[in-house]
Every structure is written in structure tokens, then in C-alpha cells.
Design a protein around this nucleic acid. Structure first.
Lengths: 159, 159
DNA sequence: GTATGTGCAAATCATTTGCATTCTC
DNA sequence: GAGAATGCAAATGATTTGCACATAC
């Protein structure tokens, strides 16, 4: 199986883009953990490792990583997107509490049948999907009608 | 079936929130069309109708509408969320082009089995879901490797 | 050699917040 | 009458952009 770096090199070659050491450093860092990441956190991780990468370089790379299929948006929280790398890894979906914002990951059977149907019907080349299921977590559903809980914060706070 | 206004009144009563004419005006406007909406567009629609509603009032209402199940995030594009009202309407999912951002709505069979399983497994009270399928549209997949198309813009531009 | 990428600083712009006032319950 | 909600103006903070320089192809 090709490494993520190789996949990206191929992608840039095909698209007439350029690969750079900065980009490879960012990609390696993204794939260095199994966790989600967001731009700021990724920037800090790189900074801690004494890599001199600017935030704009990260922001400018993300659309390419999305398009190349290496990463995917996972969810939007705390005012910004969180991403997950999907190349070579099981992709997971998210169960989120509408009240406190708590997020749980779960695996679900691939929606391959649906993807195939959509590909045919709309003539799309389908590459993946994102599924979020909403509801109320055990704590928040207990008494969903109390005016004030020790608010864990709005699911959509900040920015 | 209760009207959306009634649903919201009940919600505020149960939660110890307050209902106001401004909020009812906003809710009515949201349900006045079948389309998606975003905050700015909604604000302008109200403005055109000579309703004096401020943007912060809309922003402050949205978390309540999400929690009450009247609306749901549809997708994030052009730097902000787009919402859809789901109360009393068929909810639809989205098929999006990773290249040009084109978005197509489609109906899918309810993922009820999955929702039930998640509810049980995680003790959640599940209220809905959001499914986005990604890929490349007929135009963009034709020659996905050309460096430049008459860019319809980045899917994730602006902010 | 040319066009693309980088870092920096400044600009954007959606969203949030402080505050004085108004209004629901 | 107390606590919420409103509008306004100002603040916040993620993302984008202009620019001069560096560098991949």
C-alpha cells in the first residue's frame, strides 16, 4: 500500500501542483497519531517539534488533502473544523449531544449500497461520506427540561 | 400536528426560556420556504419584509431551535453553516463535490436501525442525523487531474 | 525560468459579547 | 419584579490575503 506521502506526491504530479518539504512535514504529522486534529492543534504539535511551519501553509494545504482523499472533515466544534485522516484507516462516524456537545465515535457498516446508488443516479464519483447522529446524552436526557445544568457549554459556542 | 410555533412555545415553557414576538417572527420566516437558509440570508429576508430583527437575535435563537428539533445543520459552505428546518418535513441528505462544492440533495431511507442500535448502546436519546456523501461531480471527475478549471471556487473558501 | 508555495503581517468576516433597555412570565 | 431577550456597537478569533522572497519542476 502506498504511503500517504506517496499518495500526495502522485496527487500533486497529476494536478500540476508542487510538493514541498513543508507539506510533507505536515502530512507526516497528521498521520503520526490516530486522533482527530484541528488546524491550531496541528500547528502547535509542529511547533513543539521545532518545525517552522506557518498556519497559512496548513490552511492552504487542507483543501488539497480533502481533494486527494487523505483527510476528511470529522465535525465542526468550538468554532472550527476537526479533521480525521482517512487514508488507510477505518473511518468512523459521530454521535453528538445537542445539549452539551459531547461527541462519541462509532463504527458503522459502510453505506456502500447507498454510495453506489448515488454514484449511478447522479453520475458522481463517490469517495466517502460523513455521518453524524444527533440526540441527547445520558446526562442531558435525564432531565432535558431543567433550565440550567452546569452548562458544559453550547454545542455551537465560540469562534 | 402542532405548528412549529406551538412546538417552540412548548419548548420554552418546559425549559424556562421566554418566547418573544421576535422569535416567532424568525421561526415563521424560517418555515416560510422549503429552502435551506443561513443567518445572513435569513436576516436579509426579514429586513426586506421590514421586520426589525437583529442578527444577534438570530444567532441567539439558533441553538434553541437545534435543541428543540425544529432545525438542523445542513452543511457548512462559504464560511458558514446552512440550516434546514426539519420539523414536519422530509429531511434530506447531501451529495457534495470535493472539487467545485456543488451540492445535490437526495432522500435516503431512514437509518432507523442504526439509530436504534446507537440509542441502546450509548444510552442516548437519538433525534436525527446528518449524512453527507462526498465525491466528484460529473464535470469535475471528467478530467480530475487538470490543474485549473474555471474554478467555481474552493469548497472551503471564505470566512 | 516560471509559476507555485512560504512566512509574515494585515485584512476579512462570521459569530459572540457587554451593556443599557425592554419585555415575558 | 426578576430574569431573559433585544439591539447596538465593539470585541473575538478562525481563516484568508497581499506581498516579497524562496524554491520545485
Amino acid at each position: 500500500m502506498k504511503s500517504e506521502i506517496e499518495v500526495f506526491r502522485e496527487f500533486t504530479r497529476k494536478k500540476g501542483l508542487r510538493n514541498t518539504p513543508e507539506r510533507e512535514t505536515i502530512i507526516k504529522e497528521i498521520f503520526a497519531t490516530h486522533d482527530h486534529f484541528d488546524v491550531d492543534e496541528l500547528y502547535l504539535r509542529l511547533k513543539n517539534k521545532k518545525k517552522k511551519i506557518s498556519k497559512p501553509s496548513i490552511y492552504r494545504l487542507i483543501p488539497h488533502l480533502l481533494e486527494s482523499g487523505l483527510i476528511q472533515e470529522a465535525y465542526f466544534e468550538d468554532g472550527h473544523f476537526h479533521y480525521e485522516h482517512i487514508y488507510g484507516h477505518e473511518h468512523h462516524c459521530h454521535l453528538r449531544c445537542l445539549r452539551c456537545g459531547k461527541t462519541i465515535e462509532f463504527q458503522e457498516k459502510p453505506l456502500e449500497k447507498l454510495e453506489g446508488k448515488l454514484a449511478e443516479e447522479y453520475d458522481f464519483s463517490v469517495t466517502g461520506h460523513k455521518l453524524e447522529v444527533f440526540g441527547f446524552c445520558p446526562q442531558c436526557k435525564v432531565d432535558p427540561h431543567v433550565a440550567k445544568v452546569e452548562d458544559a457549554g453550547d454545542p455551537r459556542r465560540q469562534r
